[in-house]
Simulated scan of single mutants.
Amino acid sequence: MKDVFARLASDFFSTIVFLAVYFATNNVLLATGIAIAGAIAQLVHSRIKGEMLGFMTWASLALVIVLGSATLLTHDLRFVLAKPAIAHFAIGAIMLKRGWMLRYMPPIVVQTIPEYVTLAGYAWAVLMFAIGAGTIAVAATGDIKLWATYVTLVAAGLKIAAFAIQYVLFRIIVTSRLRAAARA
């Protein structure tokens, strides 16, 4: 579990940096510049340590550098506001691959309820698309504080709630199936 959160923090490091600086300074351009610097520092750090970056980390770094640079050059906030939506759409598209979630599950879950894991994987894809669409809708209002709140609280809250619901349901279904198998 700790490893999953560490991977997520790594994948979204520059977004976290952007939001922290923005909330502290209320300056989007400064937050964008520091987020770009943080993304580059993350890349350099991983290269020095000889660590391999995952696809999502590379994608996040590329989006931060490209969209952040466009924001700084044009002073148009829409570029940086689009980054989380693009990331959620990309993640959702990846999650449409059948069985993607099986590698993240404990063996007991994979062996007992693989069909539910596959369905949950598709549900996660739908959630990512919905969060991406919500990000665009909120960004379209032009209210950066509302957008920042949505990206940090609503998007994260939905993912945490979905994870908790999935955990409880999987636990109930696995326990039920194991008990039924023991009785048979």
Rank of each mutant, 00 (worst) to 15 (best):
A9N: 13
A9K: 10
D11T: 10
I16Y: 07
L19T: 10
Y22N: 07
Y22M: 08
F23M: 08
F23K: 10
A24S: 15
N27Q: 09
V28Y: 04
L29I: 01
L30M: 12
G33W: 11
I34M: 10
V44W: 03
V44S: 01
R47D: 11
I48H: 01
E51P: 01
W58C: 05
S60D: 13
A62Y: 03
L63Y: 10
L63F: 11
L67C: 05
G68K: 02
T71P: 04
L72D: 06
L81H: 06
I86A: 05
A87D: 09
H88I: 00
H88M: 06
F89R: 05
A93T: 11
A93H: 06
L96G: 10
L96A: 07
G99T: 10
W100G: 07
L102S: 07
L102V: 14
M105Q: 11
P106G: 03
P106V: 11
I108Q: 08
V110E: 10
Q111E: 13
Q111V: 04
V117C: 04
W124E: 15
W124Y: 15
A125P: 09
M128A: 13
A130P: 09
A130N: 11
I136K: 03
A137H: 04
V138L: 12
T141Y: 09
T141E: 14
T141I: 08
I144W: 06
V151Q: 12
T152M: 12
